[in-house]
Every structure is written in C-alpha cells, then in structure tokens.
Design a binder for these strands. Structure first.
Length: 870
RNA sequence: GGGCGCUUAGCUCAGCUGGUUAGAGCGCGUGCUUCACACGCACGAGGUCGGGGGUUCGAGCCCCUCAGCGCCCACCA
C-alpha cells in the first residue's frame, strides 16, 4: 500500500528506500531513456485546458547530415524550460520536427546517391539508386528523386532522434513531424490558398533575386553580403559628337542592358542634361538622362547607369522612372542572344552593336566583363584603367556566384504594406533576452519588397494550383485552378484538377500544374499551425495555440521568426506564441563561430559518451539566453563532477536517515531557511527564462551544502548528540535532498531521476517544482524574525568553519590531531548563534573546546593542538 | 552609414533596481588516504572591474566620450 499520495516529498519512506553500494553515472542514460519511454513520462495530456498547457514551437533541425554541438547547446535550453514547466504542473506540448524539405536535402541526396533530378522524366517504379555514386550523375524523375529524399531523410531522422533522446530531451516522441510530410504539406498548401483567396498572396512577373547556379528565385531573407574584389570602370557615353558623359560602374558587361542614366535632381553638373538623351558606348543605344533622389552625387562621377538589372537600386529606378526592360543576363547567368536593331534593341549602328555583342553572348557575367573591357579599351570608351576595389556583393546564402536580378513569374506574400502591424507584433512578443527585438525591427524596417515564396526546385511543397491552357498552348496564369481544401495536399505535377482528364495535361485546352515549390521558410513559418492541428483538429488547436514559446537562434530571426509572426498575423490575427527565447552561438575557444565542420570533429554523441549527458547539459545550460558561449569541454567535466557529487551526497543523506523527527537544531533550520530562499529565487529566475541563473545558484548552494553543512551534521546524524539531534539532522537532510534534486532535475535529468528512484515513487520529472512552504511547514515558526535570525546561523557557522580550517591549514596540522581550544570573540548575536552550533562545529573541526565571549573586533583564534600521539 | 551586444583574476564567466575589504569554477601552488565522494577534501596566491571625464556621501553597476572585439541591418552605381 503506497502512501505516496499523502506523504510529503520531503519525508523518508524507509520501506521504499533502496541504496546502491557504489553509485555511478555509467549507464544511467540507457536505463532512464527506456523507462521514460515505457512510462510515458513526457506524453502530452491533451485533455488539459489551454491555461494548463505550455506549448513549445521547437525548431525542426535541418536534416542535411548531422547535428552539431550548437544544436545540443540550444535544444538543451529549451528542454530545461520544458522540464521546469512540466514540474510546475503544466501539460507540456513539446513536439519535434525535422526540416527535411529544401535545398540542403536535395544536395545531400544528389551527392549521396549520385543522382540528378530531371523533372521531364517519367516516374520509374523499378528504379534502384546506384550502390556507390558514379562519376556521372544518374538522371531521375522528380517522383523518384523525392523518394530518395524521403528515404535518406528517414535514416537521418532516426539518428537525430537517438541523439536527442540520449541528450535527454523531454520531447513527446509520439508527436513528430517532417516539413516534407503530408501534414506539413497540407497546412502549407491550405494556408497558401487561403492567402491567395484573400489577395494576400499573388503571382506576378517581375524582377526577382535569382541564383544562377541553382536557377531559382530567392528571397531577400536568404541574401548575404560577401566582400569581393571588383573594379570601378570609368566609361564614357556620347552626348553629342565629341561630347561625353562619364559614368563609373563595377559591371560594364551590363552596358548592353543600360536603359538610362541617373543623377541627383539637385546636382548642378547634370541638371542641364535631364530630359536629354545619350548614346551607350559600343552599342549605340540612345538612353535618357533622368533625375532621381536616390542617386548619390558623391559616388563615382555622380551619375550612374541604370541597367535591367544590375542591383536592387536598378530595380527601384526602373520601377519609379517607368523605364523599359532590356535584359541580357539569362537564368543560367550567361548573356543571352540579342538581335540588335529589333524592337527594344534600337541602335544607331546595329551591325557594330551586333559585332560587339556576339563576342559577349553565351559568356558568363564574369567572362563577359573581361571581354567588354577589352572592347571598351579598343574603342576608346574606357577612361583610364579600371580601379581595383573591394566591395560587398549580394549572394544567395547557399550560393557560389553573385546574385542576378532576373525577370520571372513568381508567387509573393504581401509583407511591405504590413510593416507597421508587424512591428507592433514584435512589441507584443516577449523576447528573451529583450534586446533581440532590435534585430526583428531592423529587419522589418529594411524590407524592400514582398516575400517571394516560389522556388524553381523539386524537393519541397508544391504550389497547389494548376493553370488552364489556352488553345494557343499558353498557360493562363491569371486564372489558377485550386483544388478544394479537403483534397490537400496535392501535387499538381501528378494530380489532375477536377473537371479535367489525365491526358489533358499540357495539351491545348487542357491544364498544366504549377512547376514550382515553396520556399522552405514558407513551410517552416507555419510550424505552429502544423503542430497545433490547424485546421483539422480544432480541439487541439484551442488547447495549444497561440503557443507559449518559440526557442530559436538569432541568425533566423529575419526568416523563421519574422515569417512565423507574419503568417499567424495574416491567418489568425494573433502572435503565434507569446515568448521567444533566443539562443546564442557556440563559439570555438578562439572566439569564432563554431562551424559545422569543426563541430563535427567532436560529434555530439561522443561528447555525451565522454562527459555524460548531464555533464554536457550542464555546460549548455550555463549559457544565458542570447549569449554566445565558448565550446568548453572543461565545463562539461565540471558538470559531470557535479552529477557524481549529487550521487554521493545523496547516498550519504539517505544512508542511515533514521530516526526522523522534529527539526530543532540550529544549523538544520538555518540550512533549510537558506534553501527556502533559494527556491524563491530560482522560481522567479526560471519564470523569467533565466535558467542559467537557476543552475548557478542551485549549484553554489549545493556545494556549500556538501562542504559545510554535511560536515557539520555528520557526527550528529550518527547519534553523537543523542536521538533528537540525529532526528533533526536526518529530517533536514531528506527534506533538503528532495528539494535540491527537484531544483536540479531540469538540468541533470538523469542523475536526479536515478537518486529520486532510490527513495521516491514516480518520476522526478513529474514531481512538483519545490515551493518554500514544503520546508517552512517543517520549521513550524515562520515569522519574519525567526526566519531571518535562523537564516544568519548558516553564515556564522560557515565563517567559523572557514577560519579554523584556514588556521589548521596554515599550521599544517593534519585533521586527525584535535585542536585543544579555539577562542572566539564576536558580537552578542553571533555569540548566541555560537551556542546553537558549537557542538556541530566541535565535531566537524575536531575542536575540544570553544571559548566564546562578546567582544570587538571579531576574532576566531586557534589556541593550540593536542600533542601528536607518541 | 544605422543599430545591438560585449570588454571584471592566466582561462570561462557571475555580479539583480549604485552601498561595507570585487565573486565562482577551471588552471596553478601547499597540505590531507577525514567512516558519501581521490571523478575527493582543506587552504592559498592571482584583479588600478578596456581608457578618460562626469553625477553622487558612495560606481564594476548611472551619464558623456574614446578604443577594441563580435553580431544584425542598409539601394555599397
């Protein structure tokens, strides 16, 4: 008959107690991981109402190889909070996702199997990938390619889950999702179609950021600057015979794409030219000179050429000045064919233009640049020599060549007109740490276009639309065909819209599927909706959304966090979660961001095996929210030592922990008073997401508990001062142990669970978070006066311990030689305290007698030692 | 160019709303097989809290300024 329902957790049930002979950390992970799974310790209880749920929008790690130490770091932070909330009585909703869609997986599959996706090929059900990738990539159909993606990611996900379990993440493993999975596809497509219906998503043919190697549009959020060598080329345009205007450009190969020159409206040098026309060198194209405030009189010659398109400024000018398009860069990054003299390509001398251009056509932008410089030099239009500079160039973050801006048909989600509303959402969101909000606001304020969400890639969520084909064989993009919501998800490249037949695909009068897939962030930005069951499980959704916490890294504030806020704002007119906890980076010891390659030198699994999961978690949890933290295996060793100490101290506390009884002794009461104060502080810090502080304070208390308190009560708890004294010590020991284990439990889930199992029932991770009342009910009198005076005993005892130990150490007297007498002079309050703790001090310090008097200044003096035994 | 963060012992970091001689761990040194723990215990030596100025009875904490490091953002012809 268990008494666990009524027995306080601070009390000992000797019938249950089972102490190991020699406690050890080895094997705890394996034991408890399977027990937790078998007992469903972390299972989400979906019967609980919203207020009792704590819902976490866990980042789905990218399944593109392996997890590294940075993942271990930040996922531990989340888990620590999850465990705290669970102990606070919350039903923790803590699913795990895998981000397996998108380019990283495509690349990995290509390399792993030696294949290449060719969407024009038919599905081959019998296809088997080569056992070892050959030199020549094998072309496979899109469905075959996706099968391989699914196969490889499934393997990766098993490895990931194993690591997460080993680390002790208290995820509910019955609730996992994949961003390429059916559920994620359904939510992504459904949310998208609803935006289309409301006019918040649209497609348009417009200049977009383009990666020429991946041959896909990309979004502003995926850009990064890279510093590259370049050169200013000073080039002359013809104003009139023998009259020239000089411009400077870093991209002379775009001269054939020039559509205008632009200068600042207030620039007196160029004011007379506004409205006039100049002629481009080599190609003889007449282009207007236009005023625009964006032009910087201080840059170069103060007048710039506008090309379609060299950079985003060109797009702005082109749009605002209503200029024509004269595009030369193609989707593969080469210069395309041009018929000079044809409409749009008017030239004063078409033959000369064609001669020059034919040398450039089919060259990459970089090669064309070298070529055109030769041509300009030969024609005399290059003024001076190119001046080498180093400048920032925009790249797709995963790309190898500079971005181009290319006109293409793409899907967009409206963001620009929502800027103010999104900034308000950012204010509404609670950020941990608060200063991370600035990054969100920087980003929102810097947005210069709507979010391009379509990608010309394969392994992703397809756009769930088809287009009718006219009799002329052209797709009618203005009238997309959407499936009914209940049919989602669909793949328009294999599924057929209602009212059409399979054989009408691609036929005049038939239909064609949208060939593109969504930006991976378009799926990731609805992870709250995916995990919370929107819209198919309204009951779950009502219990979990808006969620409580989004944990993530600061590098993806502008993507994942921002996009998620946008999507929830659009779809639900709310934040997706109330709190965002931003983790820092893991840095190399030399202060650089720990790269994946370096992180893989020490694999997470090897770390867990070497230092124990609790040891690694200790290191991770000491990194405060938002703060970059150095990779430090030394800290992991410290964490491991702490876990071992927990084992040993617990064994001591529980061995011969009877009799139990009233807690009357001064140090016992003092220790528990201080512990109660710690519980208050820890709870407050945890509620503020300052887990690192909780760990640090708890650890400090615990070491002092071991070094001072345990030494003080050692003799008494074995009965040296009688049964009452022993009972007091034993009851205080078990109470303190119970509370400290629970304070440590979120950080050191394995060792605390192990010790808990020696003497308690159930999992510590389902036990209630400690409250001061548990301890105060044992201390009976809790008036402020008593509370404060008792708390101070602990410091006094520690001071005497320290002083006497110091003097013994300086005198080089071994502990086995008793101290004959210690003189103590102190104020009246401490003299009173001395009476309460003297017996414990005598035992702990091997002091035969204290001579305590009121006096000033305070003095603690060892008077002499017994003679050493003959 | 705009913004954010950081700069405290050899190393990694705490120092909450300003209050007595600035803290911890690691490392280092000395000593100790003390009946939970040698994966241990005790003690010790290490800091003009980045520089300068200011506010205050009082500043590592507040203000100004300079310097260095890191990051975010920016239409960088």
């Amino acid at each position: 008959m268990s008494d666990s329902s009524t027995r306080p957790l601070t009390a000992l049930d000797s019938a249950r107690l089972r102490l190991p002979e020699k406690p050890a950390l080895e094997g705890l992970e394996a034991t408890w991981i399977s027990r937790w799974e078998a007992d469903g310790v972390y299972r989400f209880d979906r019967s609980r109402p919203r207020v009792e749920v704590f819902a976490i929008d866990t980042p789905p790690p990218t399944v593109s190889g392996s997890l590294h130490v940075g993942h271990v770091f930040s996922y531990t932070h989340t888990d620590v909070i999850a465990r705290f909330q669970r102990m606070r009585g919350k039903a923790v909703f803590y699913p795990m996702g895998w981000d397996d869609n998108g380019l990283p997986t495509e690349r990995r599959v290509q390399n792993y199997y030696g294949v290449r996706c060719d969407p024009s090929l038919p599905y081959d059900a019998a296809f088997v990938p080569p056992t070892t990738p050959g030199k020549q990539a094998v072309s496979v159909s899109r469905p075959n390619f996706i099968e391989l993606c699914n196969r490889l990611t499934a393997e990766d996900e098993r490895v990931f889950e194993h690591l997460w379990r080993s680390l002790g993440l208290s995820v509910d493993w019955s609730m996992t999702y994949a961003t390429i999975g059916t559920r994620a596809q359904r939510v992504s497509q459904l949310a998208f179609l609803r935006l289309v219906k409301r006019g918040l998503a649209y497609q348009v043919e417009a200049p977009t950021l383009w990666d020429v190697d991946f041959k896909t549009a990309v979004a502003q959020a995926e850009l990064e600057d890279r510093e590259l060598p370049g050169a200013y080329h000073r080039i002359r345009f013809t104003l009139a015979p023998a009259e020239f205007i000089e411009i400077e450009t870093t991209r002379p190969e775009l001269i054939p794409a020039c559509v205008a020159l632009v200068a600042h409206p207030d620039d007196p040098r160029y004011q007379p030219l506004f409205g006039r026309s100049v002629t481009t060198p080599l190609f003889g194209v007449p282009v207007p000179v236009k005023p625009h405030p964006l032009a910087d009189p201080g840059k170069g010659s103060g007048i710039a050429m506008i090309c379609t398109f060299g950079d985003v400024a060109d797009v702005t000018w082109w749009r605002e000045l209503s200029l024509p398009v004269r595009a030369v860069i193609q989707k593969d990054g080469t210069l395309g064919p041009v018929q000079w003299g044809s409409p749009g390509w008017e030239s004063a001398d078409p033959d000369r233009a064609q001669r020059h251009y034919d040398e450039l056509a089919r060259l990459s932008a970089a090669k064309a640049r070298a070529k055109i410089v030769e041509q300009l030099r030969a024609s005399g239009d290059l003024v001076g020599e190119p001046r080498a500079i180093s400048h920032a160039v925009k790249f797709y973050e995963k790309g190898d060549r500079p971005l181009e801006i290319i006109t293409s048909r793409q899907w967009f989600i409206k963001t620009i007109e929502l800027r103010e509303e999104l900034l308000r959402r950012g204010q509404e969101l609670q950020w941990h740490p608060p200063y991370m909000r600035a990054r969100y606001e920087n980003w929102a304020n810097g947005l210069n276009g709507d979010w391009c969400v379509s990608r010309q890639r394969f392994f992703g969520v397809p756009f769930p639309v088809w287009y009718p084909m006219g009799q002329d064989g052209r797709a009618d993009y203005e009238h997309p065909i959407a499936p009914p919501e209940e049919q989602l998800p669909i793949d328009p490249s294999t599924d057929v819209p209602d009212g059409y037949r399979m054989d009408e695909r691609g036929q005049p009068g038939g239909f064609v599927g949208d060939p593109d897939v969504m930006d991976t962030w378009a799926t990731s930005s609805v992870t709250p909706q995916i995990v919370c069951g929107w819209p198919d499980d309204p009951d779950l959704f009502a219990r979990t959304f808006p969620m409580n916490l989004r944990p993530q890294g600061h590098d993806i504030i502008r993507t994942w966090l921002f996009d998620s806020v946008l999507r929830a704002h659009l779809e639900h007119d709310s934040l997706p979660w109330t709190n965002a906890a931003i983790s820092g980076w893991v840095l190399d010891p030399d202060r650089k961001k720990m790269s994946k390659s370096k992180g893989n030198v020490v694999t997470p699994m090897a770390l867990l095996e070497e230092h124990g999961s609790d040891g690694v978690r200790y290191w991770a949890a000491s990194g405060r929210p938002g703060t970059d933290t150095a990779f430090d295996s030394n800290q992991m060793r410290v964490g491991r030592r702490l876990a071992i100490k927990v084992l040993n101290a617990s064994r001591f506390a529980l061995a011969s922990a009877e009799p139990q009884g009233r807690i009357s002794a001064g140090v016992d009461r003092a220790m528990l008073r201080n512990l109660a104060a710690l519980v208050n502080e820890a709870t407050e810090a945890f509620e503020d997401y300052d887990y690192a502080r909780v760990l640090q304070r708890t650890e400090t208390f615990f070491w002092r508990f071991c070094d001072d308190y345990l030494e003080l009560v050692k003799g008494r708890r074995y009965g040296e001062q009688g049964a009452d004294g022993a009972a007091s010590a034993n009851s205080a020991l078990t109470a303190a142990l119970s509370v400290m284990l629970r304070l440590f439990a979120p950080f050191l889930p394995f060792v605390t669970e192990e010790v808990w199992s020696w003497w308690q029932s159930g999992s510590i991770h389902q036990a209630p978070w400690p409250v001061p009342e548990e301890l105060e009910s044992l201390l009976l009198d809790n008036s402020d006066v008593v509370r404060q005076s008792e708390q101070a005993i602990y410091d006094w005892a520690a001071e005497v311990l320290f002083e006497v130990r110091k003097q013994r150490s300086e005198a080089k007297q071994p502990l086995k030689i008793p101290i004959t007498k210690v003189i103590v002079k102190a104020d009246a309050a401490n003299v009173d305290r001395m009476r309460l703790v003297e017996a414990d001090l005598r035992a702990a310090l091997r002091v035969r007698a204290f001579e305590t008097t009121v006096g000033d200044p305070r003095e603690i003096l060892v008077q002499g030692y017994d003679d050493p035994p003959a």
